[in-house]
Design a protein around this nucleic acid. Structure first.
Lengths: 205, 205, 205, 205
DNA sequence: AATGAATGAGAGTTCATTCAT
DNA sequence: AATGAATGAACTCTCATTCAT
């Protein structure tokens, strides 16, 4: 009566609970969008009471911020783990494309929620502060790639790294938005993007 | 007695009211997003009772559909009014870019709401049926432009019209999304997009 | 401009409109009950505007009173048209039973609405004043029948006319209420009611 | 500290709340009918917020179903608690009559609400499924009584149990409907019903 | 750390009724 | 006699949040 039973460790730490809550929230955002997200649904999916949910995550805004944090964490982790030593800019760009294709087909939730939260971030400053820099981070990765490629000659010298990066991220983020009937043409788009920035010789070689 | 009293023209026709309601809804969507749209706010802004609002537009879903229709109408009207006779593909593309810049700076609401509704249309089939074809319509305009340009030689022969169109629409629609500090660089992006599809010679000519 | 066009006599007299409104209301009460009655539905069925409906029948209460009046009128008319001269009480009772069977099968609306309005009449004094006397009128018809039959010997002398009348009207009005699976047994009930009030000899004759 | 404070026992269990809600709903149905039942009125009478009411009983339909259940429960409990061992059919019938008189005079709400709900049950299938079988249950009790009485000779052998039961339930249920000035004559009706089904000899014995 | 109960504010919708023409 | 437009009051229901334990 004075000690917790060893077989039923119901009380978990806040850290663990927050992870579970974040995951449940992500799943629900995918199903119904941020606008359709209900705290009660999250609590139910985690298997806890709504009051308990509020104990761990005080407000709904804090909850969405939590999700934004996890997305940022995952996104950065995924970006960091790819080695690029000794590759040309074009090769790295191709790696990115492959990566993107994998994400879209295997774990599309990352991009879905990213888009949802960026959208929300335009009106919600709390989310905006988390997500908008992340978007910049993503784009800056491509800026680096283009800079690299211009230096090593795998991209044309007249390519503007920032503009090109914006074109690539724009295309990619919009791509999956409209992928009702275009999902098959993803290769054509990748090829086209390459041609857009590579020197004429590369086309004939 | 010979004309309507100029001081209190309270009773208006349903057609006029629907226009006013649609405009008020558009303004509110810009302010608070589709998710933050409240029928009571619309009624207040139009200056009518909520019941009156429901008299003219029976449900909230019909209301959003009404907005979607007006957006579609405006978008198509804007697309139709530009003459392109005797122009090359590249020239028409430049016209489109100019047009886009004007819209973004002068009447950005068209694109803001378009994006909001396309987003919503992915989950709401009623809106989806109105908006998604519109997105295709927009993209197909660029497909035609690229086909034209390939024929007249202003674009490279190896350009894939569909892929190129997707890149352009993706870039444009994503552009304004992240335009916190990038709005100045719009020219660089336009230039870069041109270079991406024009032959090397054209760059120097 | 000063005379009504002969081909389109849209404006009808209030008397005619009230008849049409009453009929439409009756039909709708049958479909959805008094509780489900909506003025807009009535107007639509009559083919007029709601404002026009209120012009002819100022309030909903007056509308229901109107229906009650037509029911009373029809009910009384139906009761009056049957000749009973020279018949015994039992014979008249049998006539009533036949009549009831006809009404239930052919024009059940009379009884349906009667029941609905009597029910409502318990809380709405306006309706109560119209319907409750009508219910008494119906029962009193049976009181007269039993008095006649007791005199002519076709009913037992110990029959209490008022009690017997209440039993008959109660049975009949409840009968149709529960006629989901009992509609076939209506003959058995009629026979049983006869036996309940006729002398033992009649049973064996 | 050692017991719940006697002055402010605000938080009660759902089971208790549902009972209180059911009782309040019953009282309000008696006052204003099912059609006049408002969730806010119930909440107010129970002394809780409307949202709290919805917490315990999710929808209005569920609320009415709850009332229907309590009525069914009470009705069955009342029917079950009377011993009938060793009694003749006529004696049991008289017991039923006494019982009915008690209910009508002491706790008339049972029958009032029963009638209301049966009426509603004809259009609302959820309520219908609860109430209509109850009506059959009531009638079948009388079928059993008549069968018993026919066997023991307290009723005439030519009595049709089903028809007789329908006559009795019809009379009883209609009786209280019109009991403005007839409540005094209830004894006459009971006597008349007895005579209707008992053998001539029994009347004189 | 956890929970059942409670709540205020507000959502969309309905309906009988009225106004101006 | 007729109508389109307008309305106030009320309805059921939802949701993030809080309280007491």
């Amino acid at each position: 009566m004075h000690a917790c039973p060893p077989n039923l460790p119901r009380r978990e730490s806040t850290a663990e609970r927050r992870v579970a809550i974040g995951l449940a929230a992500r799943a629900l955002i995918i199903e119904k969008g941020v606008e359709g997200l209900r705290t009660r649904d999250i609590a139910e999916r985690v298997g806890i009471n709504i009051a308990t949910l509020h104990y761990h995550v005080p407000t709904k805004e804090a909850l969405i911020a939590l999700v934004a944090e996890t997305i940022r964490h995952d996104f950065r982790a995924q970006a960091m783990r790819r080695p690029r030593d000794g590759k040309t800019g074009l090769e790295v760009l191709r790696l990115e494309f492959e990566e993107f294709r994998e994400i879209v087909t295997e774990t599309p939730e990352l991009i879905i929620i990213l888009t949802e939260l960026v959208e929300r971030g335009r009106r919600d400053p709390v989310i905006g502060e988390i997500m908008l820099p992340l978007y910049d981070f993503w784009r800056n990765q491509f800026v680096d790639i283009f800079r690299l490629g211009i230096r090593d000659g795998s991209f044309r010298p007249d390519v503007d790294p920032h503009a090109a990066a914006l074109i690539v991220t724009g295309t990619l983020s919009d791509f999956w938005r409209a992928w009702t009937d275009f999902s098959a043409s993803i290769d054509a788009v990748f090829t086209q993007l390459e041609h857009a920035f590579t020197p004429p010789i590369a086309l004939q070689g």
